Amino acid sequence: MEEIQRIHSSLFKSTIDQWRQALSRVLVDVRAGDQLTGVYSPAQGARFYANDRETGQIDDPVLAHAFFSIWLGPSTRDPGLRRKLLGLDR
Rank of each mutant, 00 (worst) to 15 (best):
Glu2Gly: 15
Glu2Leu: 13
Glu2Gln: 15
Glu3Asp: 14
Arg6Glu: 09
Ile7Asp: 03
Ile7Ser: 02
Ile7His: 02
Ser10Met: 05
Leu11Tyr: 04
Lys13Glu: 13
Ile16Lys: 09
Asp17Thr: 13
Gln18Trp: 03
Gln21Lys: 15
Gln21Ala: 15
Leu23Trp: 06
Leu23Thr: 11
Leu23Lys: 09
Ser24Ala: 12
Val26Leu: 02
Leu27Pro: 00
Leu27Ile: 08
Val28Asp: 02
Val28Thr: 08
Asp29Lys: 11
Arg31Trp: 02
Arg31Gln: 13
Asp34Tyr: 10
Leu36Tyr: 06
Thr37Glu: 13
Gly38His: 01
Gly38Gln: 03
Gly38Asp: 03
Val39Pro: 01
Tyr40Met: 08
Pro42Cys: 14
Ala43Gln: 13
Gln44Pro: 00
Gly45Ile: 05
Ala46Asp: 01
Arg47Ala: 15
Tyr49Met: 09
Arg53Gly: 02
Glu54Thr: 06
Gly56His: 01
Asp59Trp: 08
Asp60Arg: 07
Pro61Leu: 09
Leu63Cys: 05
Ala64Ser: 14
Ala66Gln: 11
Phe67Ser: 00
Phe67Gln: 02
Ile70Ser: 08
Trp71Cys: 12
Gly73Tyr: 00
Pro74Arg: 09
Thr76Ala: 06
Gly80Val: 14
Leu81Ser: 00
Arg82Asp: 05
Arg83Tyr: 07
Lys84Thr: 15
Gly87Lys: 07
Leu88Thr: 04
Asp89Trp: 12
Arg90Met: 11
Arg90Glu: 13
